[in-house]
Simulated scan of single mutants.
Amino acid sequence: MNYLFFSTLSQMGFWITWLLIPILAETVPAISSFVKIFFYTIGKPKSEKDPSFWPFISIIIPVYNSEDTLYECIQSVYQSTYPIDKIQVIVVDNKSQDKSFKAFQSAQNSFPKLNMQWMKTEQGKARALNSAIYSSSGAYIINIDSDGILERNALKNLIKKFESDTTISAMTGSILTQKSLIKSTKNVGLKWLQRLEYFEYAQAFMSGRSIESQNNHLYTMSGAFSGFRKDALMKTFMYDVSTVGEDIDITFQVRDKAKGKVILCADAFFFVDPIESWNKLYTQRQRWQRGQIEVSQKYSGNRLGLKSFFSNFLVRRLIIDHTFMFLKTIWLFASIALLFLN
């Protein structure tokens, strides 16, 4: 009888443990996030009105071997609804080995009304951005990647939000992959990967960053599309050239050093190319994780510890991303294995 009781208790404990992992790591955070977004959406004010005048802005496009995408990127700036005479475009080449300059010349010829200039810097995105910032003339600095395109109203929506709230120092736009390129992918496996990437981006920006923005807890602005008040940006040490997570680092600098507010502009969209291969996915995620750990170590000080989980969003983010993720991965693969064990 005792054997049966303890055997049953042991089996119950085993399955309850496996059920607790997805409940704690998936279900509870999902419900909590849904409730936060629901009430945030209800209480969200109506869209901002157009300002009485549109300020002059500087758009920085770092370039490295971008001959295939640069023209369309510049074209998207030209076709935006933002007043063309209020835009400065600085294209910064950091040691490209292809014909990126030829693509720039072609854009110059096609869009003569667009104020554009070409710069050369040492290799590295952070170095390129820093050089262009010092050469910029705009009241707002906007960085976009050369392998993406702006939605027509993205610049207007970004600046409207800046102008309607003077406490905002920096913003990230919403990044999505281009659906048309996903549809044209022939490889079935790669197409499924690209679809998953699309929904991951949608969830990360429409949900994750929306929640983080509410308490000025945005962990990182997207390096693909971000905007800054120039005066706030000049209070920082600029982009850190010693880390691969320069976009995370500048987010923390604006918030911690410049004491600024960093949020998401949900209706400012930038569309990037979908991932090209599994190898590129691995390299990309490895770089993201390395950058997150480097910057977290730099800004955590002595605050790391389980006791700071509820009081410090940096600690909370690290535990969720690097500890809970480990449990979720084990649960997923172990659950599949358990099926074969009946």
Rank of each mutant, 00 (worst) to 15 (best):
Y3Q: 14
F5K: 02
W18N: 07
I21T: 08
T27R: 07
V28F: 14
S33M: 15
S33R: 15
F34T: 04
I37K: 08
P45M: 06
P45R: 05
F56G: 13
I59S: 04
I59D: 00
P62C: 06
V77S: 01
Q79E: 08
S80N: 13
K86F: 06
Q88L: 09
V89T: 15
V91N: 02
K95W: 01
D98M: 11
Q108K: 15
M116I: 13
W118S: 08
T121K: 07
A128D: 00
N130M: 13
Y134R: 12
S146E: 00
S146W: 03
G148Y: 10
K160L: 05
I175S: 09
I175K: 11
T177V: 15
S184G: 12
V188Y: 03
G189W: 01
W192I: 10
Q194V: 08
L196E: 11
E197R: 00
M206H: 15
R209T: 08
N216D: 12
S226N: 06
F228E: 06
A232E: 02
L233H: 03
G245M: 06
V254Y: 06
L264D: 10
F269H: 13
V272D: 02
I275Q: 00
L281Y: 01
Y282R: 03
Q284N: 09
K298H: 05
S311Y: 11
T323Y: 10
T323K: 10
I330H: 09
A337E: 03
L338N: 07
